[in-house]
């Protein structure tokens, strides 16, 4: 289980790095990109957590995260867009 813990820590640090990208990012699209990648990392964190705890119902949560990160990304990308 130590190996999974290490992976969890590395994923959390990568997520914080992507948060930095989202906060620093010069344009709104960089921030949306940070949001998208961050939610992918968080889905991975939940999958690892479900594997460590051996609870398959946590994977439902991961599926909803991937669904709603997609919906959220499409929504934000559509509304940030400046068309003429």
């Amino acid at each position: 289980m130590i190996f999974e813990q290490v992976i969890l820590w590395v994923l959390a640090i990568l997520a914080v790095a992507l948060t930095l990208r989202a906060v620093l990012g010069p344009t709104p699209w960089d921030r949306i990109l940070g949001f998208n990648l961050l939610s992918a990392k968080i889905v991975m964190i939940i999958a690892i957590c479900a594997f460590i705890l051996k609870k398959s119902y946590l994977l439902d949560v991961a599926l909803i995260y991937s669904l709603f990160s997609f919906v959220g990304t499409v929504i934000i990308a559509r509304f940030v867009e400046k068309r003429d």
Partner: peptide, 8 residues
């Protein structure tokens, strides 16, 4: 999702 960001 990536496509929609790039398109935007």
């Amino acid at each position: 999702a990536t496509h929609s960001i790039a398109r935007s």
